[in-house]
Design a protein around this nucleic acid. Structure first.
Length: 997
RNA sequence: GCGGGGGUUGCCAAGUGGUUAAAGGCGCAGGGCUUAGGACCCUGUCACGAAGGUGUUCGCGGGUUCGACUCCCGUCCCCCGCACCA
């Protein structure tokens, strides 16, 4: 539905919509373009159309760029610039979020190209992984939810969607859609290099890469815990979860307390407190089970037992044990050897941990409260007759603000009544937080004494595991976690899994070194990268299901899809030749070794692969020219995953000189303030945005409304206003180009010099901004502010520099709105394509501070007069202006000199001033002005002295008169003429006096 | 909870020690142009003001400084990531 609507809108030609998109046939856009161009040729002529028409202009230039191969670079003697953007995943249409990242990349590519770099900007498509497979099944089953999402949000006609019932068809379909979308917005991509990650040659490339990683011992086997649905017998991903989406997997320590030949494991997040255990807690109303776990006898709650069956332990239930029977028995602390009692507590949740809890009343409020509750209870039913008050608390953490027993203090402080009081939870968190951040272990922890609590967990747990005193037990941070099928999820230990060993210290160190040598934009994200590298753990890198490449040495596994997308930028070099028909029957690792690593010789590789010697050599040379990646731009969501892996794998595979040079990160796009969602909406597709607004407007809006990690909010009123601005730009260009009265070589007036001066500044600002990938800042200068400058220029009667400014302006806008700029450029501004024209260079010699100051003065005069008129509600008949007298200028000069230290001594200033004859002559008025200057000592500036204000005002008298609509007279306050109200005395440098009558 | 980013005048958003009542855009108001105008141009848009001024502002509370939106401390709120998923 959305699709046909789109084409109707896009094609002004009657009947065009009827030849709708047909898979496998030529690209509709192009067919349309050809028709258009034929029409254009008939009409001939190079004159801008009277009215701006995005559709016609954009189709024309997109077609021209493609036919004329404008963006197909080859190595030459220029400096290269290799820019890449993460390829999109083909499970839907490109949306506004993609549009932002890609358009930023395209504008940078265009900018660098115009700066004279040989720019390589390729694009490909990501298809490996599981979602596309899942999607094909859902489409084949006509899943109503998916059906709605893809017809409504993604705008796919039902008849087309129903055909997408295999992963292959989905890949083909979305690949074509995505490419058309990217062409419709005018990206300067070298399409000769496109590929899909399921291509056979790409698989060979991935195999080569994983061979290297394996050789380096970066791929290892291990186990890891996943969220698991016992019903579906599958790991669950976020979108499979009905409830508990935010739950994370926490690793508890399971401390093995001994009771004769049995083990009572206690789950805890604070293993260090094992030193302070004075009893265990068990829930008397809960049924426990005795189970054989590996070769030990464990007693745990029934729920914990069930969880254990999903771990990598061999478990066997032996018998049930009521909680009551265990209470009153004594157990041995494995670490300290202390004998402690098992006591009853209602707060013990059988569904959390093992259902057995160790009690550390000195540091855990719940333990303290539960113990206190038992003090006066009769426990003889459990065979406990001892006085529990005799149990001595063991304090083992020293933290500022707390004494011996933090739990007791916290309970008192918050006035917690008992273990059922909700405030008990609060007290627990408070103690935990303070002790974790500021606590240090005391002497009674032996070899661990003096270590910070925040550092101890991993060390101690490691030691305990080694000694057989503890194990790790995984538990969700919040429960329950429910699968979409309604089943409660568990944590499953997947065994014999292949891992990328991202935790390897040496590897990490190299990545950090790579990062240190890179440019990160925005720079604030460097810390984020460093933290994430630090945090990164081993990552499972193979799966059983999905699309992708098999592990070369273990064909049962498919390489996980993020892991196959790390160094593929190198493959772009090769893809061009593959697409051109290169023989790919045999692409052994030696082939890649030669072209990427320069190992071996072209001769032997040609012989080995059957590829021509010349091609082998050429690919090798291409790679040597284009690599490394100069810039990778991406959305901020990829920081903690793809961008990290991108660095890791480059560092592992390539020598240092081929490591990436820069990463730029950008934020997302929201719609009318709402977060976009591919599955729930709202969603704006790239094609819809372009169909509704045109490519240039879409680009301008998305680049101009935010930059860096801030989100762009796509708002209709804003887009409309952007459209109006662009139209004004077009109309302005049309008028300038049609204006035969412009004399470019006429002598430059003040305002001409001002205009050129402003232009140089705008060029400087925009250039600097683009070099830092600040598209918004660049557009503020290059578009909006320059626009305002031009308005002032024209208002001041400027005209002869309009063509010069327009030429620079169009070139500055070309990276952002390339179509309309080509159109304008073609009309006689310059040769060839503006896309390949030279980015304007600021000419320092044209920066004219005097002219700028003069115009500032005029602006100031206008706004001051305006203010006076509005305040006095007067109807002016005549305006007289008085420029500052010479003596005040002199005094200001002296004051500025004297104030250079920051302080201005009024007395000293007067003294020096009185030495100057011109000032002496005004000794009545001088002190008053001196005082004013002294008051402003910290912000004095000699700027106002750089301009002869009297001369300027006199020269521009006519302009001011016409601006005010009344006659204007100009005097110097030195010779004020009639001056009926004595206003001339108010004149100061930078602020001529005004008299309105 | 941990890590990163952020709270600016009706809205979006610049601004990192003085030139800032604070760029630019949107919206709104007035005027001009015009047959008309959603097109374009000008002006205003924190408050008060019969002379270009004054007062009060940049999440909240303190502090440093001659001077803070800008630096420091505390506090509240918002957004993003925390994975085996692209």
């Amino acid at each position: 539905m959305g699709q046909s609507l789109f084409w109707n809108r896009f094609c002004p030609i009657p009947g065009a919509a009827t030849f709708g998109p047909s898979p496998g046939k030529g690209n509709l856009l192009i067919s349309y373009n050809i028709l258009y161009c034929i029409n254009l040729l008939k009409s001939g002529g190079k004159k801008l159309l009277e009215n701006y028409s995005a559709k016609e202009i954009e189709a024309k230039w997109q077609n021209t760029w493609e036919v004329e191969k404008v963006f197909q670079p080859e190595p030459d003697d220029r400096q290269k610039f290799f820019l890449t953007i993460p390829y999109p995943y083909l499970n839907g249409n490109l949306h506004a979020g993609h549009t932002r990242t890609f358009t930023i990349g395209d504008s940078v590519a265009r900018f660098r190209r115009m700066q004279g770099y040989n720019v390589l900007f390729p694009m490909a498509f990501h298809a490996t992984g599981t979602p596309i497979v899942g999607l094909s099944e859902l489409i084949a089953n006509r899943d109503p939810l998916i059906w709605g999402v893809y017809t409504k949000l993604h705008g796919i006609p039902e008849e087309e969607l129903s055909g997408l019932n295999t992963p292959e068809k989905i890949v083909l379909y979305f690949r074509k859609q995505a490419k058309q979308a990217m062409q419709s917005i005018g990206y300067s991509i070298d399409w000769r290099r496109e590929f899909t990650t399921t291509d056979p040659a790409y698989s060979k490339f991935i195999e080569w890469q994983y061979g290297i990683l394996r050789r380096l011992d970066y791929v290892v086997k291990g186990s890891h815990p996943v969220r698991w649905c016992p019903h579906d017998r599958n790991p669950v991903e976020d979108h499979d979860i009905l409830k508990g989406e935010d739950a994370t997997i926490m690793d508890f320590a399971l401390i093995k307390f001994r009771m004769e030949d049995k083990i009572l494991p206690c789950a805890t997040l604070r293993p260090e407190t094992v030193f302070g255990v004075v009893n265990l807690w068990l829930n008397p109303d809960v049924n426990y089970v005795m189970a054989k776990v590996n070769n030990e006898l464990w007693i745990v709650s029934r729920e914990a037992y069930e969880k254990l069956t999903f771990t990598d332990r061999t478990v066997e239930c032996i018998s049930e044990v009521p909680g009551k029977e265990l209470i009153g028995k004594s157990v041995t602390n494995p670490l300290t050897g202390a004998e402690v009692l098992v006591l009853p507590a209602g707060f013990v949740d059988p569904d959390n941990g093992s259902g057995i809890v160790m009690s550390v009343p000195a540091h855990a409020p719940y333990d303290y409260l539960a113990l206190k509750d038992l003090y006066d209870k009769d426990l003889s039913m459990y065979g406990i007759n001892a006085d529990l008050r005799a149990i001595k608390f063991i304090s083992l953490i020293e933290s500022p603000g707390y004494g011996e027993l933090p739990a007791v203090e916290a309970v008192d402080e918050l006035k917690v009544k008992d273990q059922n009081d909700p405030k008990a939870e609060e007290a627990t968190k408070m103690v935990y937080r303070r002790e974790f951040h500021n606590g240090v272990l005391k002497a009674n922890t032996g070899e661990y004494a003096g270590i910070a609590v925040s550092k101890i967990k991993d060390i101690l747990l490691g030691d305990l595991i080694e000694k057989g005193m503890a194990e790790i037990f995984y538990e969700f941070s919040e429960t329950p976690v429910i699968c979409r099928c309604g089943t409660r999820c568990v944590i499953m230990m997947v065994r014999d899994q292949w891992f990328l060993e991202y935790s390897d210290m040496q590897w990490k160190a190299n990545v950090l070194r790579c990062l240190a040598g890179m440019k990160i934009i925005p720079e604030e994200f460097r810390a984020e990268f460093e933290n994430k590298i630090d945090w990164l753990k081993d990552k499972a890198c193979a799966r059983r299901k999905g699309l992708g490449t098999h592990l070369p040495w273990d064909k049962e596994w498919l390489i996980e899809s993020l892991g196959d997308s790390t160094i593929y930028m190198a493959y772009y070099i090769l893809a061009k030749y593959v697409n051109a028909g290169m023989k790919i029957d045999s692409l052994p690792p030696e082939f890649f070794e030669y072209i990427f690593m320069n190992n071996g010789s072209a001769d032997s590789i040609a012989a080995l692969t059957g590829i021509s010697l010349q091609t082998v050599q050429q690919i090798h040379d291409d790679f040597a020219y284009w690599y490394p990646v100069d810039l990778r731009t991406s959305g901020k969501d990829l920081v903690a995953n793809h961008l990290l892996f991108f660095l890791y794998h480059h560092v592992a595979v390539f020598p240092e000189r081929l490591w990436p040079k820069a990463i730029a990160v950008n934020g997302f796009v929201s719609l009318e303030g709402q977060k976009m969602s591919k599955s729930k909406g709202p969603l704006l597709t790239l094609r819809q945005a372009v169909a509704d607004n045109g490519a240039d407007v879409t680009r301008l809006y998305i680049l101009g409304n935010a930059e860096g990690t801030a989100d762009v909010d796509w708002r209709n009123d804003g887009v409309e206003s952007t459209h109006a601005h662009l139209e004004r730009f077009y109309n302005f260009a049309r008028d300038v180009l049609a204006d035969g009265s412009i004399e470019q070589n006429a002598e430059k007036t003040l305002v001409d010099r001002w205009m050129l001066s402003r232009l140089q500044r705008r060029i400087q600002e925009a250039t600097e901004a683009m070099e830092n990938i600040q598209t918004r800042r660049a557009l503020q200068s290059a578009f909006y502010l320059l626009f305002n400058d031009l308005r002032w220029y024209q208002r001041r009667g400027g005209k002869n520099q309009l063509r010069t400014v327009l030429s620079a302006w169009v070139r500055m806008m070309a990276p952002f709105t390339p179509h309309v700029c080509e159109e304008i450029w073609e009309t006689g501004l310059g040769e060839g394509y503006v896309s390949l024209a030279q980015w304007p260079k600021a000419d320092e010699a044209l920066i004219d501070p005097k002219a700028e100051k003069a115009e500032e003065l005029l602006e100031r005069m206008q706004s001051d007069v305006q203010e006076i008129v509005s305040v006095t509600k007067a109807q002016p008949k005549k305006i007289t202006l008085y420029a500052a007298p010479a003596w005040k200028k002199e005094m200001l000069g002296l004051a500025v000199q004297a104030a250079s230290g920051g302080k201005l001594d009024m007395g000293a200033l007067m003294k020096t001033a009185m030495a100057a004859p011109s000032i002496t002559a005004h000794k009545k008025d001088a002190p008053k002005y001196a005082q004013k200057l002294a008051k402003a000592a910290h912000s004095l500036s000699a700027e106002a002295l750089g301009l002869d204000e009297f001369e300027t005002l006199t020269r521009e008298r006519e302009y001011l008169a016409s601006a005010f609509g009344v006659p204007v007279e100009v005097f110097s306050a030195d010779e004020p003429g009639a001056d009926p109200k004595g206003k001339s005395k108010q004149a100061e440098p930078g602020r001529p006096a005004i008299y309105i009558e």
